Amino acid sequence: MALYLLVLGVCLLVIGSVLIILMTTSTPRYRTEPKDLLALFDKALESRVSETEWNAMIGYPIRHDEYLDGVRRRASQLMEEYGRRWQIAQGKPLLNTAGQQELQALRDHLAAHTALRQR
């Protein structure tokens, strides 16, 4: 009987501890920041970005910052208009020449906006 109570107590302690830990921890959240978009745009302009990496960043809505979400939506539109997905495997740019020029302008605008915000 003493062994039964000991095992029951240890089980309740372990289960209770796990429940407390699960209830007090929060869900991890990923927040896209301007530096993340700038790094992605730089990689895209240098033809070092994969389609998966592009889609993971651009396909996920940014809910905490309306301006960044607008930049993300514009980058998505650039991919739809000027994207060359089939040539990434050959080491060619993600966007054609006109798309790269517009992406460079979008990147410069985001960099200037971020610099103004940090002042």
Rank of each mutant, 00 (worst) to 15 (best):
I58D: 04
Q100F: 00
R73L: 12
P34Q: 07
L8P: 01
L78R: 03
N55R: 15
L78G: 00
Y60P: 01
L6F: 08
R31W: 14
G99N: 04
E46G: 11
Y30D: 09
E80L: 15
R29E: 14
A2F: 01
I20Q: 10
A105Q: 09
R85Y: 03
H113F: 03
S17C: 10
L3A: 08
L68E: 08
M79T: 03
M57D: 02
G70R: 12
D69A: 07
R63A: 12
I62C: 08
Q118W: 04
L5P: 00
P93I: 05
R63H: 11
P61A: 12
Y60F: 12
A89M: 05
E66K: 15
G91A: 06
E46Y: 10
L95N: 04
L78M: 06
L22V: 13
E66L: 13
Y30V: 15
V10S: 03
S76K: 07
A44H: 05
P93N: 04
T27G: 02
V71P: 04
K92Y: 11
L103Q: 05
K43V: 04
A111D: 10
N96M: 02
L38G: 07
L116S: 09
T25E: 09
D65T: 10
I20D: 04
K92T: 00
I15C: 05
M79N: 06
Q104H: 02
T32V: 15
G83R: 04
V71L: 08
L12A: 09
Q90Y: 13
G59L: 10
A112K: 12
G91N: 07
K92D: 04
L22S: 12
R119S: 11
Y82M: 03
V71W: 05
W86N: 08
L45I: 06
S76E: 13
Y67T: 13
S76A: 14
E80D: 11
A39D: 13
R117Y: 01
S17Y: 07
Y60V: 11
R107W: 01
Y82C: 01
R74L: 12
L6C: 01
T52W: 13
G70N: 13
V71T: 06
L12I: 03
G99L: 05
R31I: 14
A89S: 09
L8M: 08
A115K: 13
H109L: 13
P93V: 07
A56T: 12
E102F: 01
W54H: 09
I58Y: 00
G91Y: 05
R84N: 05
L94V: 06
E51R: 15
I15Y: 03
I15Q: 06
Y4K: 03
Q101H: 09
P28R: 14
A2Y: 02
G59R: 10
A111K: 09
A75I: 05
A98N: 02
R117E: 09
Y4G: 00
Q118F: 02
E102Y: 03
A2I: 05
V71Q: 08
V10F: 06
L78E: 01
R107V: 01
K43P: 02
R119C: 00
G59D: 10
Y67G: 07
G83W: 02
A2L: 07
L103R: 02
R117W: 07
T97G: 01
V14K: 03
P34T: 06
E102C: 03
R74F: 12
L5K: 05
V14C: 06
R107L: 02
E46N: 14
E81A: 14
M1R: 00
Y60Q: 15
T24A: 07
V14R: 06
